[in-house]
Design a protein around this nucleic acid. Structure first.
Lengths: 240, 240
DNA sequence: TGTATGCATTTTGTATACAATAATGAAATT
DNA sequence: AATTTCATTATTGTATACAAAATGCATACA
């Protein structure tokens, strides 16, 4: 991870730590955010804390309810459906624009993010992997640099990270293989973006998305268990 | 306009009035928002005022700069280009989803908004026309009800209103005709949405967008003046 | 037993005072 | 005369105190 970070103001620190905690599900969707508790924990009075909560709400991390405090943005099967509808379109557009508009500095940053992603795949925790992947796509958003697309893109990235934390635990070989495929696709994306090949970038966006979707579906609709119903509880039926 | 509105809390009132003022260019892009002045004007202390500014920033109405106050979100030719890129895609998606998901109550609201739009066309000011059009499309956004698309859609609506205020002043017959065409397209959209015909709705979205784009282009690239260069300043050359 | 009512507690919302930072302008130096 | 420096002023950021609203709980009642 990067070195200096402690110079940031307490407000920025609070903002970032809450963001990370939400992205990594350390703060669960729907969790209540108590102002008094948070302000004490971060050594900040409630006034700036409330401002931070509003800024987080603006980006979709939390939801504010009048006279009833803030909570971490919820995720239901409805939002999962919304996600599946919106993500391919927005990701495609962002990556296409990224290929058109990227600067060479941004390209370097993207490569660094990918290096961290690879490192996280090899020996990192799910949290590190999720954050590295988040960072990779965040940079493509910066490259695209379209003020009208970014709000939705950022919102998608938040929940993609959270969905990933839920569903991307590789329990079998197929899932583990998917992760290395994802890494390969990142490399291909960098190449296309470097060459300013926006058509290829959009194409890769589609492939990357399909892989991601497949991974999620492996969890949402797992292969059914094989034991016949009546026998299921035989081996360890102690109660009743 | 609607009747009761004064029951709202001063905070909500401030929020809405600022929103309207920004949408109608009463507050110009880039304009400074002084906290002290605003808080005095609305009889609200700076604490809740600052919270309102952050909420407005979250939706893209204003931009916050650390230690340097808020200003109305800027518009440049860069953002205009971004707008042209993003708008057709997002509008199409929103209207398609609106046709799929609308409730009958929402349909009624949409018809009311269209009635107000027609009224504004007949005898209203540009401000009323812009706000009625804004409201119409805002309702289609509610119908679509996709949390990931809405942030970008809302951001587009803000600047579409502001661009409209700049460019939709009908100075000739073609422009006036465009407005009645737009109204006709709204009627067609309502019909498609009522029938849950999402394909037709997406198609109409494209047509509606093309009309809007043409209107803007009429202003951005007007027909050149015809007088030859050397003679241009002859008739009223008083200085030099 | 289930439901309503009112009080006590907790939590959120607002105002004000003060601290920190940025903007302004006058004086001094080159 | 132009530019830098420094003090003054204006504006933003934060802490605290208080007001308002919501929550939880005990009691009364059907």
């Amino acid at each position: 991870m990067s070195v200096q970070q402690n110079t940031a103001s307490p407000k920025v620190r609070l903002f970032d730590e809450l963001r990370i905690a939400i992205l990594t599900l350390e703060l669960r969707p729907g969790a209540d955010l108590d102002e008094a508790r948070l302000s004490e924990r971060y050594g900040l009075s409630r006034t700036p804390l409330r401002e931070v909560l509003r800024e987080l709400a603006g980006e979709g991390y939390v939801e504010l309810r009048e006279n009833r405090g803030a909570r971490v943005s919820d995720m239901s099967y409805t939002t999962l459906r919304d996600f599946f509808l919106a993500a391919p379109m927005i990701y495609g557009a962002i990556l296409q624009l990224a290929a058109q508009n990227r600067t060479s500095q941004q390209l370097d940053k993207l490569q660094q993010a990918q290096d961290q992603f690879v490192a996280a795949l090899r020996m990192g925790s799910p949290v590190e992997r999720t954050l590295a992947n988040y960072r990779f796509h965040q940079i493509t958003g910066e490259m695209a640099a379209n003020v009208y697309l970014l709000p939705s893109f950022k919102r998608l990235l938040i929940d993609h990270a959270r969905i990933g934390m839920t569903f991307y635990k590789p329990v079998n070989n197929e899932m583990a293989g998917n992760l290395s495929k994802a890494s390969q696709q990142h490399d291909d994306l960098i190449k296309a973006i470097r060459q300013r090949d926006d058509v290829r970038a959009a194409e890769l966006a589609g492939e990357h998305w399909n892989l991601s979707r497949g991974q999620i579906e492996l969890f949402v609709t797992p292969q059914g268990l094989e034991a016949p119903l009546g026998n299921l509880s035989l081996s360890n039926s102690r109660t009743a």
